[in-house]
Simulated scan of single mutants.
Amino acid sequence: MILVLTDSNDAHANHLIEKIEVEELPYFRFNLEVASLLDTYYTFRNGEISINQSKRVLNITDVKCVWNRRNFVELLLEESYDQDMDFKLWKNEWNKTLTGIYNSLKNVDWLNPWRLAYIAENKYLQMEVATKLGFRIPETLISNEINELKSFVSLYNPVVLKLMNQDFYKTDKNEFKGIYVNKITIEDLEKFGNSNENPIVLQKYIEKSFEVRYTVVGEDHFVCKIESQASSIANIDWRRYDIPHTPHSAIEPPANIKEKVTYFMKELNIEYGALDFVVDTLNDWYFLEVNSMGQFLWIEDLTDLKISDAILKWFKNKLNLKVNNYESILN
């Protein structure tokens, strides 16, 4: 049985589950958004766990592998604000229950294990491992000391401001907006206070030839060239998405980059990752970050890279591995 941890609006899960059903593989979709959890019945008794969601029942002992698209209660943007005490209690108790479920699944195969996925998201760890393996990384400063920040901008101008935690934020107009990578000047830093400010991330801006979304599934590598410099909207951060004016294409990575990515994934002990690189005008590759639950479907749609097929293959291999191990015991 494949356990898919997701939510009902996850297009990636929808796409993979269609393939799972074609292959007639056993699966249970566990949606973690509020509406689905309100229609979920859970029982833990004498070490046994059962989950009943939308009239489908899962006995946790049937799970052989897990696809980790979501970890905890998934909130709509409007649900993230103005939570009353009852809702906070409900959400927190569900999240504690989910950690209990995951603990009971610690001996099955995960793509990726939730604890390791969480650790792998740490930008400090990513930079440490990337440096150890010899990746180029843009000069970086993380600080809330105004003089340090100004000195960095003066030294490396142009510089960009990044966030360690990507999220959406509510504006004064009750709109939800993401904060992406932006160039920053010393004049911008004048708005930064001398106290009570959180640390911010500054990086030297790399003059880009193109950007790369590098997706790894087990031993399979899928590399997409994103020509962000063709767009006046996406040229600093392709996540502003100007798809019609931002060509995407499948490429082969340099052999040394592929080797380093392989070791990087092993160091983080994860089997799925969406890595971001920028490639400068001298064709040097700079590592930016890895997302252990990163999106891939738009890359597949634009380039025909078979990422979802690789994930399906991972499921089938893990299910077959269990069967083969069992047969070897019998023989």
Rank of each mutant, 00 (worst) to 15 (best):
Y42V: 12
L149D: 05
N107I: 00
W314C: 09
S151K: 13
D82S: 13
E33L: 02
R136S: 15
F287A: 06
V223A: 13
K88A: 10
D39K: 13
V279E: 04
E121G: 02
P26S: 15
E79P: 01
R69V: 10
N9F: 14
I137S: 07
F287I: 03
V4N: 09
T171K: 07
S292A: 15
R69C: 10
S143D: 11
P247Q: 07
Y272A: 01
D109L: 01
F277W: 12
I226K: 06
V129M: 08
L161K: 11
V223Q: 02
L302E: 13
I257H: 04
E289K: 02
E48C: 05
L3S: 10
E175D: 12
Y118A: 09
D284L: 10
K55L: 11
A13M: 02
T215R: 04
K150R: 14
T185Q: 03
Q295I: 03
T246E: 12
V201E: 10
D10S: 11
E128H: 12
F176V: 09
C65P: 08
S249W: 10
E23M: 08
Y180K: 01
E48V: 09
N46C: 01
E121V: 00
K123N: 08
N103W: 13
T6W: 05
I206R: 03
E93P: 00
E259Y: 07
A130Y: 06
I226V: 14
E219N: 15
L189A: 03
E93G: 02
V217Y: 06
F287D: 06
N320L: 14
D39W: 02
G193D: 09
N59G: 03
L163Y: 11
Y81K: 10
K64C: 10
I186V: 15
F222V: 11
L319A: 03
N283D: 15
I200Y: 04
P253L: 06
L330F: 13
K225F: 04
E267Q: 13
E197Y: 02
P158S: 02
A250F: 01
W94R: 06
W67F: 12
S228I: 01
I226C: 02
S36R: 03
D220E: 15
L319P: 00
L77T: 08
A255W: 00
A274K: 04
K91D: 03
V201K: 07
N256T: 11
N196G: 06
G193P: 05
W238H: 13
K316M: 13
W314H: 08
F135K: 01
F72Y: 14
P247M: 06
W90E: 10
I311D: 00
V279N: 06
I233P: 08
